[in-house]
Amino acid sequence: MRLIANRYEPTGNASWGGMGELNECEDKNLSRKVMLKRVFKPSDLPRLLDEQKALIRLRSKHVVQLLDVISFKWNSQDIRCLVLEHIPGTDLDKLSFSAGEEYQKTLWQIATGISEIHAAGVIHRDIKPQNIRRDGNGIIKIFDFGLARETGKDDKTKSIVGTIGYMAPELFGTKTISFTAAIDTFAFARTALALLGIQPRNEKPKAIPAGSVIAAQSKLNVEVAKTLEACLDLSPTGRPSMNEVTALLGRDLLRDKHRARVGTQAQAYELNATKRTVNLSFQSQGSLSIRYDGYEFKITALSGDVYVNNARATVGTTMLSACVITIGSAAPRAFVTFDISNPEVMA
């Protein structure tokens, strides 16, 4: 078989969408599979270029990677293809989830991907479970940037484009519409609910009463449910940024995963989810209690002279890692070291 661009060999596997096709090929240079994407009609070429423009700006673990752009002749036809990373895995519309850590990790990865897309100045415009895939290593990848636009540059539309059900209310109308990255935030929340089996209706979205997400999904973390509701705000400015959404989901995934090591001259203590509090005192110079609330280590009680890194501590002070607690304002004083672990959201 003839190689395309001197390196890509079609495997014969292909899929067709509304306006183009995806051909699976073997890249002979790196012995790996890639996907060649092209459009059929010359009038759809701008969409391919929009996708190319968006993907070139993006280098995210959670976004399909553009590897190459090739132009060649095939049966005397001029063909232009994007060469995309091949991602073996399952699209999210084929998977079912229930509220819990696995689900929340998935949301965190999707949110991280969308945050990185927005940070690169791109609006995806078609976030939905069918455009998100979980690969063999459990990594979430967002693809199909055929509708993507550059923030602040070509973020206006005259026609209704996107997928109804995931489209934010501001996209419905007959006049020219300006839109922002907040349309992806809306689609993210609709996607999050669809993964739990709450499919969107095919109509212009209406306001949802506060508390309805948690009412429908009682096992969902309350904070996560509230965030999803905020993402569905009918007003684009009322929705949180995807950065905020990612931070909140990540914070909750790390709840109760930290440890702290407290060291005195005489003894070492460990604080964690099963042992949350330590009480420290030195002679009559002072005393304090530190408690782990699942997110941070905080001073909850204090008497006498207590300093953290030489600054006077008070009740409510949040402990920083690698600091020294001093009990007493003059000798004899006690020094206590305090170090916190660094759990990371797996992905």
């Binding site: 440890r259 702290a260 090591r261 920083l320 890692s321 690698a322 170090d339 916190i340 672990s341 660094n342 759990p343 990371e344």
Partner: peptide
């Protein structure tokens, strides 16, 4: 390593 208490 993730269980270690360190600051970077």
């Amino acid at each position: 390593c993730e269980e270690l208490c360190f600051h970077f």
